[in-house]
Design a protein around this nucleic acid. Structure first.
Lengths: 248, 248
DNA sequence: CGTGATCTTGAGGGAATTCAATGTCGGTGG
DNA sequence: CCACCGACATTGAATTCCCTCAAGATCACG
């Protein structure tokens, strides 16, 4: 069951303190057509904390943002790009817990030490605030405490959803993945994948070959279309939903 | 991959408002010998909320405490017995997210609707408080907000830990499970399982047969002993740790 | 256009599931 | 007390789904 990971990790991390704060902080670059799926209001005042007190940092593709076991000092809000959090397993295997998109906050689970690693799927810009700062402020700012509690609850729900996913068959996992990615994208049925097949495989607990084969099979049954390997069109949502568990 | 679930659900739920509050609220009945493993201080003042504002309820073995899709009104604190939370999948399959023991708080992930079901593994006593009450109080009681935030973070870490588990082989999963159960018990190397093989299987994403076979194999290699099917003795922690991922 | 990285496709094998019995334990009534 | 029963657990044999190994195909980039 163990997929291998073969990753070149470019280590150049550029940091830029206190630049372009409010301006970019919450602009997920509205793109093309299609009415946006109900997105939660990402612009709560927890975002404010990142703008007011945070600093910015940039990471280039495949650079590590933090690693397991390191002291966990910060909460992160993703401004642009994509991030994956994961745990390294024995034998070079890797379990990717989540992919994050602009507007998402990550690193919420961590106590004094990181239990996960995070790195940049693409070039990335984040804003970060010290956990201690937030915790200290939250002692007297209930609003803030509630916001972070809420963010953490959402993250917990997401994590639990992912658990169910790993109890499913390969087809079901891939279907779930596609539907989730589509739900997060603005475009109705077109999904732009920022991550590799290896990333997807490590997220779904499958091998790269199984993911690829499943995509191919779905294409041959007209469930999806694959204009290019990282561009997927959902052609038969009904079937995907059925696979996903909307009553079999 | 789909294990079937065959469960008789006795539906008699006895509720008892406002009885035996403080007395039982935080007494995990200290048992036998052996120095307790470092237990987190379960007696934080979030527990107070359950004592002060909550009410009690009892559920008999296999009774449902709440179900997916129902409105989520309460947070729960387990007083006695054991609880499992799970998601039902297609084909009668089930993914158990967690088992809870006395002192644990559960139901933290839920927003307006339950995303998981919970039911009683054994006869159970809980205290419950309205989510709305806690949320309302937390608006002006930062202490409280922080405590629930912290509880939620711990739950998130646990959930993420479970994710890794599901990426492992059957042997590794069972080893992880045993070590976790042992860590939560007071006794050093003796584990009393309150749940069935089916529960364990659904927790680990395996079938009942695979769990059973794995136990048997571990017994034959003197890794564990099985005085009875629900009573397991860890005889070779080193080996279990190795399986679990302490460097293979 | 070569060269490497990524993705796809094929063939074979292995780990866990499925199907099917058998074994064990706790309770209940003869 | 012991035979019987049902629920739960174990064990065995066959199958299946996914992984592993191994080639190709495609794409990006110099």
């Amino acid at each position: 069951m163990p997929p291998l990971l073969t990753f070149a990790r470019s280590q150049d991390i550029r940091e830029a303190d206190m630049d372009g704060m409010a301006a970019l902080a919450n602009t997920p670059s509205p793109r093309t057509l299609a009415p946006a799926r109900s997105q939660p209001p990402r612009d709560d005042s927890a975002g404010d904390v990142f703008s007011r007190l945070g600093r910015s940092a940039s990471f280039s593709k495949d650079a590590q943002i933090y690693g397991e076991g390191e002291p966990a000092d910060y909460f992160y809000k993703l401004i642009s790009g994509a991030v994956r959090t994961y745990k390294s397993l024995t034998g070079g295997r890797r379990q990717i817990d989540a992919f994050y998109r602009p507007g998402d906050v990550f690193g919420l689970a961590h106590g004094s030490e990181h239990t996960l690693s995070a790195d940049a799927v693409t070039d990335v810009r984040v804003r970060l605030v010290r956990q201690r700062t937030v915790e200290a402020l939250a002692q007297h700012d209930c609003e803030l405490a509630l916001q972070f509690w809420t963010l953490t609850r959402e993250e917990l729900r997401r994590s639990q959803g992912h658990l169910d996913l790993l109890a499913k068959t390969a087809d079901e996992r891939v279907a779930s993945f596609l539907l989730e990615m589509a739900a997060r994208a603005r475009s109705e049925d077109e999904v732009q994948l920022s991550m590799s097949r290896q990333d997807i495989a490590d997220h779904l607990g499958l091998t790269i070959e199984t993911v690829s084969r499943t995509f191919s099979r779905m294409e041959s049954t007209a469930t999806i279309a694959l204009p290019s390997s990282r561009n997927i069109v959902l052609r038969d949502r009904a079937r995907l939903n059925r696979l996903n568990g909307d009553a079999n």
